[in-house]
Design a protein around this nucleic acid. Sequence first.
DNA 1: TTGACATATACCTATATCGACATATAATCG
DNA 2: CGATTATATGTCGATATAGGTATATGTCAA
Lengths: 126, 126
Amino acid sequence: MARAATTTDAFNAVAEPRRRQILDVLAGGERPVNELVEALGIAQPLVSKHLRVLREVGAVHVRDEGRRRLYRLNGRALKPIHDWVSRYEGLWSERFELLDDVLDDLKKEEDDGDDEQRDGGRDAPH
Amino acid sequence: MARAATTTDAFNAVAEPRRRQILDVLAGGERPVNELVEALGIAQPLVSKHLRVLREVGAVHVRDEGRRRLYRLNGRALKPIHDWVSRYEGLWSERFELLDDVLDDLKKEEDDGDDEQRDGGRDAPH
DNA sequence: TTGACATATACCTATATCGACATATAATCG
DNA sequence: CGATTATATGTCGATATAGGTATATGTCAA
């Protein structure tokens, strides 16, 4: 099985930085594709495709205005992300950072400097 | 170019539901791979692979304990997600929902029932 | 040592990208 | 009508999966 489609849910749609950028621009108000192309500085077909993904997960709404199509942000679609990640909010508070450090210290003591041997140091860069 | 690697950042790592599930379990405290396999009900190699991705983006820390490896959540890695999505918090408040409805009504009036013709009704199911 | 247990990695297949390019569709203007 | 502008779609190439299976690595126990 391949990776889930980007149109599966908001999580997948928003994993692409360009799509987040599009939403950031739209946060400033309704915009035609034209301006999004300019703002992002990438090819127009690519913008249209990103917009399609955002449309399919409901992150944007479209409105026809003459030969232009005005895109508008729909924040509701991001709520699941906010709800999920909010459960982890506070884990990076100072108090938790300290706890983390303590646990890291305990780990170091237990492993007695023999750490990172099995994993080949491929652990996260800090 | 293909899609960005899942190890590129937390956004991509967390787009996979199973990896969110793993983090959810780890939110309850340090766990060996064993228990994660049980909790998720999927094959062990798959869990190890997901854990590797989470390790590479720094979302989890590992600690060796005998022949087991204890994984621990590192909430800090999720902060960028929280920071980004929080800028959209409130867009789904009641007041904004109402504004949205008003805008949708305006759209309907403008298009005069001729909407969804070009898009073939392929818009997101709201 | 031999074996059982715990975890990680290698290999394979099917699939869904992202980006570039060409082209189609649609609306407006002269 | 034909030309221009605005946007969407199709195709192709390169790539990175997720899941399955087999296997390697590491640890403990008898």
